[in-house]
Structure formats: structure tokens, C-alpha cells
């Protein structure tokens, strides 16, 4: 199967240099809708959904392949090969920041630089390392996902019906955005929050920009600094934005930080 269908790849923009955006745990490529258009004049903009999210081909999902982040990184490399990406800019949010880190090591030359938005190489505290969560807290998250998928996900569909205030978010949004198969969501959460990719950071062969929010409960400033310190070549920018999704809450700040980095 082509990764174009499998990962619901959409390509836009007028530039020749590719910029590929990867969404994190929770939603889909719509996460980039306030950021990606800003680069359409200068870049060939590539968006995709991870298998299991958005409008990806759910039949391509297998617990075995996607039982670790490496499966997602393999997909990213396949997408890059199919689209013949060279010297691309990779922009990854949350867990996808680390998926991009892994892909950059697997496929040298595919990416020229990485933009990592709210990255965390490990969410669970470990000795002196402060990931922000105890193992018990993550277990509770995984249990609650198993316990209440109706509250978490099935009920999402009616929740996003209609959109009187922002008609530009058309119908396609109501059908896919933040909607996940409960079983897949549970497995993706486990893979994400149990992951430990700290060892990959020093191996990244390209320069990177770390965009860190204030007051981010998912990836704290401390974690952002850790990523910055362990990458061979990186810039750390502390945004004024709060929360975990500056691409939605403060797109302008994200765009200008990216522009000055590029």
C-alpha cells in the first residue's frame, strides 16, 4: 500500500524545498492548520496522519508494528522515500518530535533540520531525570483510557458537530479531528508515555530548534532544556505561550520562531 493513502498525506505550497509536519498524540494533521499555511509560499508543505489517527487507513494498524515509536518512525521514513524528500524541514509536535529524531537517524540526508515543538524523550521520572510524571500516574492514565473510552473518544464525535463561530473549519474537521479508535488511542498512549528515547538525542545528525512553552504540563521547561542540552546542535526558544499546543494557541509565535531559525 502506498503511504499516501495509508497516512492520508496532503501536499500543498509553492516552494520546492519540502517541509513535513507531524502531529502528536491526541489529534491529527489539523493541529497544523494555523501554522502550515504560513510556509506555503516558500515550501512544499507535506501533512500526514499517523496510522490510527485522523483519516489514516485504520486497516494498516497493527499492534505489533505500532507497539513502539520505531514503527511510526519507519512510516515517516517511508513517506520521505516515497516523496523523495531531501534536505527537508521536519516539524514535529509532542511525541512526533521524538519520532522525527528517530527518523533523522534512520535516514541521513532526508532532513536538513528538525523543529521540535514540546518534545519529551521520556515522560516518566527516572533517577535524577525529571520527566514530569510518576509511573503510577501514567498507569492511571492508561487505566482511565481503558475504563472510559466513551467519555474520552466516542463522545467526541457529537461534541464537534457544527461550528457556528468558525465556519472555515469545515465538515471534514467534524469527522476526523481528535477522533480516534478507542483501542488504538489506548495503545498509542502507552507507546507515547512509556517511551524512552533519551539515547537517540546525541545521535541526531542535523541541527534542531526546540520550541518550549511555559506552563506545559506534558513537557516541562526542564525537559525542553534536557533535549536542548543533549542534541548535538540545537537552539532552544522559550515561547510566551502556555500549555502544550502553541501551534494552536500561539501560532504566530511559533511561525516567527521557525522563520528566524530557518
Amino acid at each position: 500500500m502506498s503511504s499516501v493513502e495509508r497516512n492520508n498525506i496532503t501536499i500543498s505550497g509553492n516552494g520546492s524545498r519540502p517541509m513535513i509536519f507531524a502531529h502528536g498524540f491526541g489529534c491529527d494533521q489539523n493541529m497544523w492548520r494555523f501554522v502550515a499555511p504560513a510556509f506555503a509560499d516558500d515550501f512544499k508543505v507535506v501533512l500526514f496522519d499517523h496510522v490510527g489517527a485522523g483519516r489514516s487507513d485504520l486497516s494498516a494498524y497493527s499492534s505489533e508494528k505500532y507497539g513502539s515509536l520505531a514503527g511510526y518512525a519507519d512510516d515517516l521514513v517511508e513517506i520521505g522515500e516515497e516523496l523523495e524528500l531531501r534536505d527537508a524541514v521536519f516539524v514535529g509536535h509532542s511525541v512526533s518530535a521524538m519520532i522525527g529524531v528517530m527518523a533523522s537517524i534512520k535516514a541521513p540526508g532526508m532532513f536538513e533540520s528538525l523543529v521540535l515543538v514540546g518534545p519529551s524523550p521520556r515522560y516518566i521520572d527516572d533517577a535524577d531525570y525529571r520527566g514530569g510524571f510518576s509511573r503510577a500516574e501514567i498507569e492511571e492514565l492508561l487505566d482511565s483510557l481503558a475504563d472510559n473510552p466513551m467519555g474520552w473518544s466516542a463522545a467526541m464525535a457529537p461534541a464537534i458537530m457544527g461550528n457556528p463561530d468558525r465556519p472555515e473549519l469545515g465538515e471534514e474537521l467534524t469527522n476526523s479531528f481528535c477522533r480516534t479508535d478507542p483501542d488504538i488511542a489506548q495503545e498509542f498512549a502507552r507507546v507515547t508515555f512509556m517511551s524512552d528515547s533519551r539515547g537517540d538525542l546525541p545521535k541526531v545528525p542535523v541541527r534542531a530548534l526546540v520550541l518550549q512553552c511555559r506552563d506545559d504540563i506534558i513537557a516541562s521547561e526542564q525537559v525542553g532544556e534536557y533535549v536542548h542540552r543533549h542534541l548535538p546542535e540545537s537552539q532552544l526558544v522559550l515561547l510566551n505561550a502556555t500549555g502544550h499546543c502553541p501551534n494552536l494557541s500561539a501560532p504566530d509565535e511559533v511561525i516567527s520562531a521557525m522563520r528566524s531559525f530557518l
Binding site: G26, C27, N163, G243, C245, L248
Partner: peptide, 13 residues
Amino acid sequence: FFETHFAPLLRMQ
């Protein structure tokens, strides 16, 4: 879960 699912939803729509 709020931060990864509902906060984005609120921002989006």
C-alpha cells in the same frame, strides 16, 4: 488527556 485532546479542540473550534 485534557491537554492532548480537549484543549486543542477548544482552540480549533
